[in-house]
Every structure is written in structure tokens, then in C-alpha cells.
């Protein structure tokens, strides 16, 4: 089952400003499960790319926050998730057909219960 997770950065990721609750370890775990991961944030795309590289993560995509629909068109997946901390995250996610999780809920890594992820140790 192909799953794509888009993370907002500020207020969502631990390296955001303000820091959020989603850790790099959570992102790495999702990536190890074969999920497509990346960010859709109000940070400029080139800055998002630099942030992922700085933290030694190969992001599958970076895009402006309002570019979730474009991300969806680029990647075929069974489920699309966006994690964020603002109304605008929810608004853009739902408009693009993504499932939306608030960052404070997403610290429980709900994606781990999706599809093949349930078989992991």
C-alpha cells in the first residue's frame, strides 16, 4: 500500500520555528516503511529542500503549502496525508484530497497503523 505523507514545517517539525512535535526519527521511520515523504510548507521550496538535506533526509518532494494538489498529481498513492498546525494546513489538505492530521495528534504516528505498516515490529 503506497502512502504519501506531507509534513508542514513550522509548528509541526521539530526543526520548525516554532518547533513542533514531529521528530526526524518519526520521519525516518515512515520512510523506512516505504512511505513517500516530503514537506508542503510556507517556507520557500528551496529552503525546505535545504532543511531536509541539512538533516540528512532525502525528501521525495517539497512544495508550497498550497501545492498539495500538485504533489498528489505527481505521485500515485493509496493514501495521502498532510500533517500541520494551522487552519491553512487543514484547508489546503482537504481541498487537495489529503487526509489531514493536526500536528499534536500526529505525534502518535497514526500512519503506523495504515496498510503494511501494521506488520512492522
Amino acid at each position: 500500500m503506497a502512502i504519501l505523507i506531507s509534513f508542514d514545517i513550522d509548528g509541526t517539525m521539530e526543526f520548525g520555528d516554532p518547533p513542533g512535535g514531529i521528530t526526524l526519527e518519526m520521519v525516518r521511520r515512515a520512510q523506512e516503511l516505504g512511505f513517500l515523504i516530503g514537506s508542503c510548507s510556507d517556507r520557500p521550496p528551496s529552503a525546505q529542500q535545504a532543511l531536509w538535506e541539512k538533516h540528512d533526509i532525502r525528501a521525495d518532494f517539497v512544495a508550497p503549502k498550497h501545492g498539495l494538489d500538485e504533489v498528489k498529481s505527481r505521485f500515485e498513492a493509496d493514501d495521502y496525508l498532510h500533517i500541520g498546525d494551522r487552519d491553512t494546513d487543514q484547508q489546503f489538505a482537504e481541498r487537495a484530497g489529503f487526509r489531514f492530521y493536526w500536528a499534536y495528534d500526529a505525534i502518535h504516528e497514526p500512519w503506523l497503523t495504515l496498510g503494511d505498516a501494521q506488520d512492522l515490529p
Binding site: 520555528d17 510556507d42 517556507r43 520557500p44 521550496p45 528551496s46 529552503a47 535545504a50 532543511l51 512544495a63 508550497p64 503549502k65 498550497h66 501545492g67
Partner: peptide, 15 residues
Amino acid sequence: HRPEPLTVEDYLSAR
């Protein structure tokens, strides 16, 4: 705090 340069593409794609 955010020493990343901007690109023309960043500007044109901003919401």
C-alpha cells in the same frame, strides 16, 4: 536563523 537564499521559482510559487 534561516540562511537559505530565495530563488525566482520560490517567489513565483509562493501562495
